[in-house]
Simulated scan of single mutants.
Amino acid sequence: MNFNFLTPVSDLVLAHNELLSSQALGKKIKIHSAQNGIPDLDDVDIAILGVLENRNDVNYIGEEFQLDDIRKSLYGLFSGSWNTTIADLGDIDKGESVEDTYFALKTAISILIKKDIIPIIIGGSQDLTYPNYRAYDNVIPMVNVVNVDSKFDLGDSNKPIKNNSFVGKIILDQPYNLFNYATIGYQTYFNSQEEIDLMDNLYFESYRLGQVSKDITIVEPVLRDANIVSVDLTSIKGAEVSLNQKYSPNGLDGKEICAISRYAGISNKVTSFGIYEYKPSKNDEMTSMLVSQIVWYFIEGVNYRLDDDDFSEDKNYQKFITLVDSQELVFYKSNKTGRWWIEIPFLNEVNNKLKRHTLLPCMHQDYLDACNNKLPDRWYKAFQKNCV
């Protein structure tokens, strides 16, 4: 398997790892080192991948960065009672051009997801989500992307790709594989009215910071339905991170971002998870520790995945049918986990994109709303996309 574009984890981190407790996570990870090369991936479930690319950051002024502090923090944490095997594959350095980095990242992710290994990408600028998305071109027909961000990052797709406009490229570049795009934690004053309207017109989903902070559980269904989750560290409030990472006094707090990460891990569909916009400071313990804990909670979630979406046998679920404005809505509740789904009806006369999306994750509240003659918002948007 050709991963010759990966550079090993630094000797500094490996030396630090030697001093850790035998129970520490760093002692249980297969690590790509200069001495031993890339570890065998045969029984690996999760692979950590650094990407040292930030040239498409709109504020890029030539600064370099590395991920040693994050690795030191992560390796020093204790693992849960996990049964997953984790590898750290080291870093993808900047290529000759940004396109070279994109190609290397796309290649690496594509190899990993075809081997049923979940990559955790830790990187520079968030435009790296674009090659992450393109890695799915020949893997699954339609892709759902969730962006944890204060902004939609739609941008002007006619201009060269940047970290504030990569979603426009995902929507408009061929092949068209995007089915749903959702933003968690957006802050209205960072987004133009034009972008907010476009999100509505495309029937994409958006969850305001206030909604998420009031009830974090509202984001679980959209994460349960995601293939790719991309976290922008600027969505985290300034008080939670170190100096260079501070962006806004408002944002998600540490507990909220870790809960979101765990929901992403628990989702049976999430097959890649990225954390972007890392900007190290001199005294960087806060940010590197928070990123480590975000990664830890994602791995924790993966360990608690349950196959609860098999509705082929009656004993696995309960079925509920209700009428809303003469529209019959069919809900399913898993007997294993208590999680809910809603059925999206096929429109036979339409060239249907939804062959794999007949059941849409939802909340118990959506069923209660339907009983009170209110159409669930997620169902409505998915139904409208199905009609397009």
Rank of each mutant, 00 (worst) to 15 (best):
M142C: 01
G123Q: 03
A87W: 14
S97C: 01
I111Y: 13
F103V: 04
D88I: 13
A108F: 03
I117E: 08
P131E: 03
T107L: 07
E96F: 10
A104M: 04
K106E: 15
I86S: 13
D100T: 12
F103K: 13
A87C: 15
I92V: 01
L89K: 05
D91F: 02
A108Q: 01
V98N: 02
T129F: 11
I120T: 05
V98M: 00
G124P: 02
Y133C: 06
V146F: 08
I118Q: 15
L128N: 08
Y102Q: 00
T85P: 10
T129N: 14
K94M: 02
I121W: 11
Y130P: 01
G95T: 02
K106S: 09
T84M: 06
N132M: 06
F103C: 03
I117C: 08
Y133M: 08
A108C: 11
K115F: 09
Q126V: 10
S97N: 06
I121A: 05
D91Y: 07
V143K: 08
V139D: 07
I120K: 12
Y136F: 15
I109D: 09
D116A: 12
F103D: 13
N144I: 05
I122E: 09
Y136D: 04
L89R: 03
K114N: 14
S125P: 03
K115L: 13
S81K: 13
N83H: 15
P141K: 09
V139A: 04
I122V: 15
N83T: 14
L105F: 04
Y136P: 02
T107A: 09
I121H: 11
D100E: 11
I111S: 10
G123F: 04
D100C: 06
I121P: 05
D127S: 08
L128S: 06
V139P: 00
D137R: 05
L89W: 06
I92S: 00
M142R: 07
W82P: 05
S110H: 13
K106D: 01
A87R: 14
E96L: 11
K115R: 15
N144V: 03
D116I: 02
P141H: 03
T107R: 12
L128I: 01
S81E: 13
R134T: 08
G123T: 06
I122P: 04
L89M: 12
F103M: 10
S81W: 04
I109F: 09
R134H: 09
I121F: 11
S81V: 04
W82S: 15
A104H: 12
L105P: 00
A135T: 03
I109L: 10
A135G: 02
T85A: 15
V146R: 12
N138A: 10
S81C: 00
N138L: 06
N132V: 09
K114G: 02
A104P: 00
G123W: 07
